[in-house]
């Protein structure tokens, strides 16, 4: 450190798919005050050392969501992440593009799939054309109704959640945390007329692929908490449709399963979720497990005071047909 600056080593991912066979990391060294935002450092490198370094940015104030990237392996907005703590912890700053999206060049990724999944949830109010708004009147909401949006209007669509999500990584069917958080915002909007239709569609549109791992909630720079709103969507979807999909059948099946004995009956749950066909499909796996873990065939002993569990269910649970 000299004066009020620190020596900062940046290793920045460089890749131009039109020319390069392989991505590489390029090192830049500069002295900067420790409170310097990473985006400022990138712009300085670009202005003074290497005009070819490519990054996406706009507002520089954590509002536009353009400059999300991986800083030392974590999803961050480059404009609001200071270099000091990163250097103190890791000794250098590795900058990489976001995950789960194709790299266009250096730190810029192709956001087309991310926005397409957003468009697919129909991110606008759907009104009933037979009930037009009275002339000259708006569609007012009460403060209590606005509270139902929770944190979702804060989303700046930076795609940090999309980048962090293991379901997005493994399965193109999953719409991603941001699209689902936005969907939630319209499902609870009292002005929207398509609540049920939205819930019915998303049940087969990947909702149940959410792993509730909360990596999105951890990655979000605006505390939108997508994983918690996805949970809400699941409960609302079950309330509207019951167990029509493997995911909703599994949730309902699990709930009913532990009502019977207080503890999980593993074998029965497989049947509840996957049906008899699923049980046959899982038979090979079951046989392998049974050899080492014969308990999976046995029903658990009922817990003591099981009647208390039953009474709690009677007081708080909707009556649902078993899946």
């Amino acid at each position: 450190m000299t004066g009020n600056t620190v020596h900062a080593t940046f290793d920045i991912y460089r890749f131009d798919p039109t020319h390069d066979a392989q991505p590489r990391y390029q090192r830049y060294e500069l002295d900067l005050p420790p409170h310097t935002p990473i985006l400022t450092a990138i712009l300085k490198i670009r202005a003074e050392a290497d005009p070819t370094l490519t990054a996406r940015y706009s507002c520089r104030s954590a509002i536009c969501g353009s400059c999300a990237m991986q800083v030392n392996g974590k999803s961050r907005l480059a404009c609001e992440t200071q270099i000091g703590p990163e250097l103190a912890r890791d000794g250098r700053i590795v900058l990489e593009p976001m995950r789960n999206q194709k790299v266009l060049r250096d730190l810029v990724v192709d956001q087309e799939p991310f926005w397409r999944r957003y468009d697919e949830i129909r991110p606008h109010l759907i009104l009933d054309p037979t009930k037009p708004m009275p002339e000259g009147k708006e569609n007012p909401m009460t403060p209590t109704e606005v509270e139902r949006f929770r944190e979702t209007p804060r989303c700046i669509a930076c795609a940090a959640c999309y980048s962090a999500c293991p379901a997005v990584e493994a399965d193109p069917e999953f719409p991603g945390p941001m699209a689902l958080a936005k969907l939630y915002r319209f499902v609870v909007d009292p002005r929207d007329q398509a609540h049920q239709d939205r819930l019915v569609r998303i049940q087969t549109g990947g909702l149940w692929l959410c792993l509730r791992c909360h990596l999105c909630t951890e990655a979000c720079p605006k505390d939108v908490r997508p994983s918690e709103r996805i949970r809400d969507l699941k409960e609302m979807a079950i309330a509207v449709q019951g167990g029509t999909e493997a995911g909703s059948r599994h949730a309902i099946g699990f709930k009913e399963n532990i009502r019977e004995r207080g503890l999980l009956n593993e074998m029965k749950l497989v049947r509840q979720t996957s049906g008899l066909g699923g049980l046959v499909g899982q038979a090979g796996q079951g046989m392998r497990m049974m050899r080492k873990k014969p308990e999976i065939l046995k029903r658990p002993h009922p817990i003591e005071q099981l009647d208390e569990v039953e009474k709690i269910y009677e007081a708080l649970d909707r009556k649902e047909a078993p899946p």
Binding site: R231, K234, A251, K255, I258, G262, L264, R318
Partner: peptide
């Protein structure tokens, strides 16, 4: 009793 394993949380 069982904690619900996250699945009961999804249902209710």
């Amino acid at each position: 009793s069982c904690c619900g394993s996250g699945f009961v949380d999804e249902a209710n």
